[in-house]
Structure formats: structure tokens, C-alpha cells
Design a protein around this nucleic acid. Sequence first.
DNA 1: TCATTAATGTCGAAT
DNA 2: ATTCGACGTTAATGA
Lengths: 233, 233
Amino acid sequence: MLIIVADCEVNYTGRLTTYLPRARRAIIVKADRTVLVMADRGHQPLNWMVLDKRSSLHIEPDRIVATKGKEQLEIMLHQVLARHELELGAEPGLAKAGEELEMQQSLAARPEAILPGLRLIQREYATSIGPIDLLCRTLDDQAVVVEVKRTAAGIEAVEQVCRYVTVLSEDSRFAHAQPVLVAQSFRPQTVQYAQRRGVLCVQITLEQLRQGAEGELRYPAGPYCGPGLFELG
Amino acid sequence: MLIIVADCEVNYTGRLTTYLPRARRAIIVKADRTVLVMADRGHQPLNWMVLDKRSSLHIEPDRIVATKGKEQLEIMLHQVLARHELELGAEPGLAKAGEELEMQQSLAARPEAILPGLRLIQREYATSIGPIDLLCRTLDDQAVVVEVKRTAAGIEAVEQVCRYVTVLSEDSRFAHAQPVLVAQSFRPQTVQYAQRRGVLCVQITLEQLRQGAEGELRYPAGPYCGPGLFELG
DNA sequence: TCATTAATGTCGAAT
DNA sequence: ATTCGACGTTAATGA
């Protein structure tokens, strides 16, 4: 990893065109030739480029130029204030727990946590517009389409699960499926919109799932209102 | 900006739980107290925390702890190999060109690039659910709702433009509007779904727009099937 | 390689 | 404070 602090000017052309006027910034060139231009605030770099094998990187005393296909990042180093090169070695990698996958797997193992008597038909059931998180059936054999969101579910999630219901309606085995949205929390507008569309909202946190608790029905099921009806009140 | 290179171990708990085993990494603490833990590859930090006023940050010789609400980032510094503190000063900011705004403005100036004879009624036409990029009319006075996407348009874009048509239907002047999606490219599923919803997909690149060329109609206009209704088969 | 979806997405603007 | 949509989104996964 090469760390340069410099008074610099940056041009990027590629997916768009940007210009960064002359100022002092930190520039990082990583072992995999990733280049970052960082300001003193925020998460995101001002400019960057992640290079692959076909890309080129030239580091000169007063200039750094990275090229990747039609994209180019040019850093003009007007004055270098510091320069440190160091070896970081291997990265063991980040271990994560609590992602959507964990929720989905936990729910697949205990679908009755979503609705009493619910049983799983298939996880990641493939459709022409993408996989359904959980395809299930109720006690009385009604098909249920479950979309799982780890974080607070938004309106898009409602639309996503409705799309699946519509596509499923082509298959007589799964016609008139009930859409269900499971999330750790819901935005108010999401619940409202789900209500209009007849989408069931079930709130269950990862902790509850781990403890084996059942989800709380946030909104009672109304009739499914068809694929896309959107009436304003 | 404080840059520390250290043999470290990191724990994050909050939106999820992560653990980063002991290894050598670069740690950056910015002027706004943003903390980044960086590996020697890729664009994204391994761990990070962007703090606000209510958050706390403690920097000790062998430990950095950032707390923000229920989130906590703890960096254990087993061995500090380098430590540099420096002033970067003010950031003039990044100037950008070629974003969605440019496409929208170019299309507003030449709506006939979307469809022959199309004329603009209003750009950013306000509705209760957000502004319509371009509200237009055809030669025979049919209202047209245009949603512009700079990048490859996804299924959400289809739904977005359909929502606008539905809301517009309350206004007799713009009832039965034709939804149109303009983008530099379309994902295959998007075209398929747009077809079902009666949404016209028009592909125009920024380069074409700059050159004044007309858009290529990617998908022939079918009848708009109502807000969400679409027929299968 | 391409297409699709999740993400501690981040970020900024408008309500 | 919350919602919403854009982003050079990035990154990972499956076909």
C-alpha cells in the first residue's frame, strides 16, 4: 500500500466526467492497484479506480494515471507532502453474521415462524423475473410467496413480492398466491402501501428468530389486489 | 486526518455483527470523525463508521472505539507500525458532468429524440408521489410520461413510471398517459416486464443525444394495459 | 462473461 | 426525522 499526501488536481473520464480542483488530499494505491483519492470527510472516496489485469497504472513523481477500458483517472501531484509505502500482508477476511441470507435460512428452517402451519415448498424458487425467497403453502394449501428483507422494508419490497405473485399466476399450481413480506422493521408508508395491495407484513427480528420466537403480524391480510393497482386516498 | 498502520483486530456490532481477525491494516480517522479500516485491495473498507454529533469516538494508544446509537466499532491495536496525523484543509468539492440531469435536460430540449413529434409540457412535473422527469404530449395530443435513467434501467424504473401514470389519471388533462422509459441501456428482464405493462422502452445514449441523433425505438408501442394490469401470453 | 440482487450500501435533497 | 431516488454505486453469486 502506497499512501501519498499531496496538493493535487484530479480528472476522471469514463462513466461520467469529473474534475477535482487543486487541494490537499490523501491518495492511496493498494496492492491490487486500486487507487483512491480521499478527502477528510465521509465514507466515500472523491475519486477512485479499481483496476483489473487489462488496466494500466503509471505512477510518476508528479502524476498518477490509471486507465481501464474507456475510463481514465489522472491525478496531478503539484506538491507531495508525504509518501509512505508499506506491506500489509494477507487479509484473513471479514466474518459476517446477520445478513439477509441468515434470515432467509432461519425462516426456511422454521416457516411456521411467519404464519402458523406454513410449510416450505422451496427456497430461492426460480421464476422468469428472479428467484422467490420462500415459496410456501398454508394449512389449506394456498400458495404463499414470501419476500425477506433484513432491514426496514420499503415500498419496492411490496412491489417486488407482487411481481412474483403475478408471474406465479401463470402456473396453475401457484395461482392466487398470497404475498407476504417479512422484515425486521417496516417503514410506515410500506405498511400502508402493503395494505392496499393485500400484502401481509410480518415483523420478526433476527434475535427473535434465533430464539425461536414467532413473527408478529403487523398488518392483517386483505384480499390480494392484483398486480399493480395503485389508488391514492 | 489520522492514518495508523497497525496489527489490529476489529469488532463491529450494529446493523449486523462482524469480526475481523488480527492482521495488519491501515486505519484512517478523518476530520469529521469518520473511521475506516482498510485492507490492501478493493474500493470498500473492511469496516467503517461515519459519526454524527451524538456519536462518540475514543482514540487510545491500543484501542479505538466509535459508538453511534446502537452501533459500535471497536478496533484493538495490537501493534502500531506507523502513525501520521495531518491537516488536509478545505475540500473545494467534486465537479460532475454527465449525470442523469444532463440526459434529462438534453431530452427536455429535444423531446422529439424520444418519439417523433413529441413535445414537452413540463420537466420535473410535480405529483404527490414525486416529480415526473418529462411530461409530454404526442402529435395527437396523448399525454406521455417519460422516466429517464442514465444507466441500465431495471424493473423498478418500469414500476416508477407506471405509478406516475396512475397518479396522473386523476387529472383529466393527462388521463390515459403513455408511459415511456428512456435509458442508455435496458436489462433483459426490464424490457420483458415493460412489455407486459405497456411501457415503451427507448434506448438513447448520451453520445447520441450530444450528437443530436434520434433515439432508437427498442420496443414497439403496445397499448398501455392500465396501471399494473397486464395480460399474459 | 453476463445478469441479477444485497448492502452496515452512501449520499443528498425534499418533505 | 424520515423518505426517496441516484450512484462512476460496489460486491457477490449463479447461470
